[in-house]
Design a protein around this nucleic acid. Sequence first.
DNA 1: CTTGGGCGGTAAA
DNA 2: TTTACCGCCCAAG
Length: 114
Amino acid sequence: MEVFKNGKNFAIAIRNVKGTDFQKRVWSEICKIEIGNVLTYQDIARNIGQPKSARAVANACGKNPYLEIIPCHRVIRSDGKLGGYSGKGGVERKKELLKSEGLKFNNDLKLILN
DNA sequence: CTTGGGCGGTAAA
DNA sequence: TTTACCGCCCAAG
């Protein structure tokens, strides 16, 4: 059994999750991102000890089975652009989610740092 | 801005 | 066991 925490500090136990070890490591790492924060795919890769696996991390995000729990929208590209979003609404939805968490973007969908 | 090479995990063939 | 596919990254031009 894996234990995930989201940004609101709810602990959520998930049994019989369907996915590979790699995917679970990625997902649990994503759950650590707090509201208003973002990490890059590369950051996640580094945090799980596989700095060269940024692309694979993106794959795992896309297969996230718990869209409502795991904040995969808080993962963006290392150049500050949004990247993709496989949930309903696509990147536009991703952008709105992040804006509602207090982040801002320029017209190139690029994150504006404070 | 574009391109081209490199990359790793996964599902399907 | 290969292949094809990607929500990526980086260096050059």
